[in-house]
């Protein structure tokens, strides 16, 4: 990424989220936040702190513990002139709002003949490695991405968080915005200027020649670390950040795989029927004759996340796992 010519500042992901929401709320008074304890506590991860005082209870709205209506009422508000940003505390609680997501949010515009805009952002977080047990610890973006009508974004870095949040809030389609608990405190350079990243566009985070690693969120950070380590051993790794899971930027991902001839996909969703399989299938279709090896997938084994650290560590993907996967292709 070339940030060379732009003014940037060093920020943590959590502060980028706060600042970006602040800027968007200031820019457009139709933008408001609703969710559990968003006022006072500042949301599940205290990220929204300060927005309550600035915008008051009308625009930073505490809801009852009612996920069906947290999502559904935001949909109704979006259909009638507001631009809600909803917080669902942990992605597992999306299950409570299941029908609203599956049958209402995703289908409303299409069923109505494409005649209404639904500027709705649903923020939630993936969590792994926090010893939070199965209901509070999982990644679910693949689940929502399987529903036509939902755009699904995964934020990973301070820079993409700003660009993707702004794009999502300004979009006239419903966007599922997945954050990841493990990257909130990661820091990096963020352009100071106002900018958006197109929903549906991937980014090459690090250029390389030998192997492509496609990685999201916490795994993007692990992949960059793996690339660094292997670089010292003379293996040149290209790291691609999909940014959007649906629609997926197959073109950018496949172009990288074509260039390197080897591709590893790594993501914190369960391995089967997940993000990894979709990306692997797309790469295989697009770049088959340029690949030297079958696309490799790394994901969470197909079990709910166990509580005990010894069990959870067993199923987590870490930098070493990515290094090993790359080495099997080298």
């Amino acid at each position: 990424m070339s940030l060379a010519s732009r003014e940037t500042e060093e920020m943590a992901v959590r502060d980028v989220i706060n600042q970006t929401l602040d800027e968007e709320m200031e820019r457009d008074e139709r933008v408001y936040i609703q969710g559990i304890d968003v006022h006072g506590r500042g949301g599940t991860s205290n990220i929204l702190k300060g927005l309550d005082e600035k915008y008051g209870r009308e625009r930073v709205r505490n809801t009852p513990i009612s996920e069906v209506s947290i999502v559904g009422s935001a949909l109704g508000a979006a259909a009638t002139g507001m631009r809600p940003v909803v917080e669902i505390m942990y992605c597992g609680f999306l299950g409570v709002a299941g029908d609203q997501l599956l049958n209402q949010v995703a289908k409303m515009r299409y069923m109505f003949g494409g005649k209404l805009d639904l500027p709705l952002v649903i923020r939630t977080k993936n969590v792994m490695g926090a010893n939070a047990a199965a209901q509070h610890s999982q990644a679910l973006h693949h689940w929502l991405a399987a529903i036509p009508g939902l755009k699904v974004v995964c934020t990973s870095t301070p820079e993409d968080t700003k660009g993707l949040f702004k794009a999502a809030i300004r979009s006239n389609d419903p966007i599922m915005l997945f954050e990841h608990g493990s990257v909130y405190n990661e820091t990096g350079q963020v352009p100071v200027e106002d900018y958006t990243f197109e929903i549906g566009e991937a980014a090459v985070e690090r250029e390389g020649e030998d192997v492509t690693v496609v990685a999201t969120q916490a795994q993007l950070w692990n992949a960059l670390e793996a690339a660094e380590q292997l670089g010292e051993e003379g293996i040149s790794v290209e790291v691609v950040n999909p940014r959007t899971i649906s629609p997926l930027d197959t073109e950018t991902i496949a172009a990288s795989a074509r260039k390197t001839g080897r591709c590893v996909v790594v993501d914190d969703t369960p391995l089967s029927y997940g993000t990894q399989s979709q990306i692997a299938a797309d790469v295989s279709e697009e770049a088959f004759f340029d690949l030297d090896f079958p696309v490799q997938r790394l994901g969470i084994p197909d079990v709910p996340t166990p509580f005990s650290p010894s069990l959870e560590n067993e199923i987590l993907i870490d930098t070493d796992d990515i290094v090993d996967a790359i080495l099997t292709l080298a």
Binding site: Q135, H136, F307, S308, P309, S310
Partner: peptide
């Protein structure tokens, strides 16, 4: 404590 001897053999923890 997440131990094997717990009610859920460490799979559940405090909340389960």
């Amino acid at each position: 404590y997440g131990k094997e001897t717990g009610y859920c053999n460490g799979k559940g923890g405090s909340m389960h």
